[in-house]
Design a protein around this nucleic acid. Structure first.
Lengths: 197, 197
DNA sequence: CTTTACAGTTAGCAATTATTAACTTAAAAT
DNA sequence: ATTTTAAGTTAATAATTGCTAACTGTAAAG
């Protein structure tokens, strides 16, 4: 029943660390706080990781790769351009719920942390994400499905940005439960706008 | 020529503190870092503020109020519902550029900081913002200008959220210059969607 | 001309941080 | 049965933190 009992300490450290960053911010990401959360001392953490920074690298890689894969999954489904783009959003939302909003928060924290290593990882992820999605958007523009006056690369960032906006609202309102209550409503707003036809 | 020379130390502390939080995160918000930035020692800061927390309260109040006012300014212009909403976005964007993205970053940082006082201030701001904008959106729905199937309160949060998303992209791409290069494009995407008609 | 208040300094405190070292213990390998 | 290893402990390190106290100089007030 209790799956957590089965997890290795290493795994528990990663999960507890991510949870602290997401819910309380980088400032609370300390060896002592992580240890407290999983019932070991701060020193014990160094039996599993060489430094706190190496925990962060592991956290970033793990969560970011989940997000990267969601674009590839949508492409692999071989849908129409419009449906592929909608599917990207659906996949994003599902990763978001699964990781409790971790990806955008991690991006936001570490893009400003001043740590070069963290930034490089995030930046190369964002770059590859943007180029993949831009290509789909450009194809959509050629097909006449996507408005020709929108910038593909800016709009690609709008996809993640919209997700982040929802995490922002979720955090600011101290909500519980799903971050995006109505995914199709959000997708519809992105695709068709808020203006009535 | 150099206006900064005219600023009081108190003012310099607030500006330097906000800059540190925005560019480097809460972890770097220390008395020493603030002092270094304006050329005084950490101890001197306590001649102007009773604690670091009181600096944060000042920063939040100052930046948040700028954002609050932008909705009121848009309403005061007595435009059509659609134009009022667009004007809100324009005002937001202008505050955003003026404050270099501070508002959404401050909101995000302090809604997760665990500090009750900070959260109260932010929460009451977000609440009042949301109710003001919701009312306009509901009016728009009655007039048939705004889609009836969008949630006014969720969509209100989308207005600030979208802005935050742009700050995210700005930070992640290490851009300089304006955060939103093409405000009308963003406004158009929010209002009319990315799908061609 | 003296006094006082302001705004800065240096020095220091207790608490917390990341990390290491030395020790314990239980399980796995030999 | 013994040895080794893994994973934990406590205790200690040096650095940094928020903040205070005691001191200094300068400029305005009396």
């Amino acid at each position: 029943m209790i799956v957590e009992e089965e997890l290795s300490t290493r795994e528990k450290i990663i999960l507890a660390g991510a949870q602290i960053i997401v819910e309380e911010g980088l400032r609370k990401f300390t060896a002592k706080n992580i240890g407290n959360k999983i019932g070991i001392t701060d020193a014990a953490i160094y039996k599993h990781f060489s430094s706190l920074d190496s925990i962060i690298v592991e956290i970033i890689n793990r969560y970011i790769s989940k997000c990267s894969q969601s674009v590839d999954r949508a492409i692999a489904m071989n849908l129409s351009t419009e449906e592929t783009l909608k599917q990207v959003m659906r996949e994003h939302i599902s990763v978001l719920e699964e990781t409790k909003g971790a990806v955008p928060i991690l991006c936001f924290e570490f893009s400003r942390s001043g740590n070069k290593k963290f930034f490089e990882i995030l930046h190369s992820f964002v770059d590859s994400y943007k180029s993949k999605l831009s290509k789909i958007l450009e194809k959509g523009q050629q097909e006449g499905v996507i408005r020709k006056d929108v910038n593909p690369s800016e709009t690609a960032m709008l996809f993640v940005g919209l997700i982040q906006a929802k995490v922002f609202a979720y955090v600011m309102e101290r909500r519980t439960g799903p971050i995006i209550a109505n995914p199709e409503e959000l997708i519809s707003e992105l695709f068709y706008g808020i203006i009535a036809r």
